[in-house]
Design a binder for these strands. Structure first.
Lengths: 216, 216, 216, 216
DNA sequence: TATGAATGAGCGTTCATTCAT
DNA sequence: TATGAATGAACGCTCATTCAT
């Protein structure tokens, strides 16, 4: 009774958030390693060093835990991309920066989960059904990213850099297609090329592909 | 005695194959709808209108059933693609034909499963582990497809049509990236563009991207 | 229509009995190898080279098939034992003949199934429940064997050879205990002794044990 | 903080052990009643009044549950036999004590499972395959028992009490043969004799059988 | 609040038995 | 009559979720 008023509550709250962070990290880790269906709440709890029930004090269920991760990652990615883009000068540099950022993310072991999970979910039919269609989650965040790319492309078109005859949605679609981690995996699997070279080729290819047609 | 020789055996065999075909179709359907883990043998059997045990008369287990579907589809796709390519004249036309074929497949409701399932499996980390890595299945088929594309690209390079400074693996990688059903899905979701137009844009984009550099 | 009267029927009947014999032999074989629960009708049919359904034309079910085997074996054993005993002269020789016969049976690969199956069933709680208690089968046959031994023992007692103070049921019980194949298995497992020597020791031991007390 | 140190842990642990004990008892019961293959985890759980899954919190699988029972019983039997033997004076008294102990066990409804289960497993070909051969379990315990009997018999031979011309393995084999519950069951089935009398006869029979030959 | 024992629906799989051919 | 495809009840086992402590 007589609950201590704010300080302890915020202390508790802080501890709670720290705990939640640990759960999210562990879950992200297992998820990236084993995939959704092979991941058990038990293993997540074990990695954090807490009891299974405690996970349910923070997240109502397995799905919600995964959603939280996805939204957090989407949020982080979008913000990082926005920051990355903000620094770049030209439209082309902006898109190249995104390419570099994404592929750098796959390359950097510390950021890999961040980039991989959204792809795992978006590319798995069963998970998309659960997390994208059934829940409306992540929509908003990804839309922001798409809008960002769209605005860069529109700017480029307005500046006469990019091909005005190619609809922006097609440009967006091709751009995001190139970001697939599948091709990256093939690269590291066959060890054929450093990431930076691959990204350079990708950039050259993309900008040649969308370049404004001369004499237009 | 005097057993009727071929007719009854082939009749039985025919019925057996028909049944198997029904199971494969139902399984393909559920698989495309729900994904591997959400698909139960019970539901497959129910859709065919047979008992659960009957499925096991045709396939030793769930994995094997899925493998059968995947191999069948991979086989069919590869053969259709090869046939498609055989008709085309120039290297560019060959690759465009593949693009059209694949996107036409996504568009044609009758061929959708055919095209979707390999993507479902190849893009899901958990399923790749089971079906591509653990079993060696499908490897061979997909390699044939990749080799086909590679040979077209090499021919184009030799003919001075395609950019010799871009490594063939990168060209292959970008080409297959463009075939992702994800972008197609976005299209039909937003209903923005007929498939044929989208494919036309894709082709233009890709060939501009890989075109030989003038003056080279 | 117009069924041919007797000859063909008896031909059919003969074939039928031959078939049944083959099924019984195969079943006995698998049963001895794998035990009741690990034996499947499928395997029995496969060994005979007939269809599963055909087994059910001869025996109403798995249990009944096993019962048929057991009764046949019991019948055969009892008859062989009776024949064996008939030849022997003295009471001691009769019992020794039985010992030799039983252990010889375990030893002779051709007779092993014959001897083993009854033991498997009588010594397995689950099978006894099914085959001895639930069905009343085999009771009669084994009782005849017991009666035979009992009469030999009684004769021996009357002749002053065997200990009159030991109740015949106890003598019977100990006698049958010594016939357990378990001890034989241990022998062949450790390869310590030829069967004939073991049986000789067993006989000496048993007759010393039941010998009439001197001065009585 | 200030976690109560040992009490709660030991309380939990105690409850856990009690639960486990209940499962073991129920499993032992069903096992003795129905045998291994007719015993289902469902029924064990139902008898304890718990859910099926709970059984798996205590034992990784059906086999392991049975092994636990067998080892527990073997352990208990061996220890009780050793204690029984320790009290007895002469070699003959020691073996008689074992006989009395074993048959007393069969007679005492509370100890019946204890004695029966090892026999069920050792005498069923299919179970021996699973539990004795595949797993190495119980081997050690039973060897200790055999060694105990062997040493008593050797002592007796050395003391001139037992027949030196009969190999100890044969003596051991006959001794264990007499301990079979089969004969006891026949007794209680026919209600012919009190257990103590039966054991007395058995003892007299056995020691006459192995007695040193006079004048030797 | 944190725990982790308990739950029970659900899965993949087996196999004795049936029955249309 | 012989077949073997079809059946479906039953099994061992898993794991997301709940709740008494």
């Amino acid at each position: 009774m007589m609950l201590p008023v704010t300080a302890p509550r915020s202390l508790k709250e802080k501890q709670r958030q720290e705990r939640e962070e640990l759960i999210l990290q562990a879950a992200e880790e297992v998820l990236a390693e084993k995939g959704y269906y092979e991941t058990s709440i038990d293993e997540i709890a074990a990695r954090v060093g807490i009891a299974k029930g405690t996970v349910y004090l923070h997240f109502p269920g397995k799905e919600d835990l995964v959603i939280a991760i996805l939204e957090r990652n989407a949020q982080a990615i979008v913000e990082l991309v926005e920051a990355t883009v903000a620094i770049a000068q030209s439209n082309r540099e902006k898109l190249e920066a995104i390419l570099r950022f994404v592929y750098g993310g796959f390359f950097d072991p510390g950021k890999r989960h961040l980039m991989q999970l959204p792809y795992i979910v978006m590319n798995s039919a069963e998970l998309r059904r659960v997390f994208v269609e059934k829940k409306g989650c992540m929509r908003v965040k990804w839309d922001r990213l798409e809008a960002l790319v769209a605005s860069i492309l529109e700017d480029g078109k307005a500046a006469g850099e990019f091909d005005k005859t190619m609809p922006t949605p097609v440009m967006i679609s091709t751009f995001f297609s190139l970001l697939s981690p599948r091709s990256f995996e093939r690269l590291i699997a066959s060890n054929q090329m450093p990431v930076s070279d691959y990204v350079k080729h990708l950039g050259r290819f993309y900008f040649k592909g969308i370049a404004a047609i001369q004499g237009e």
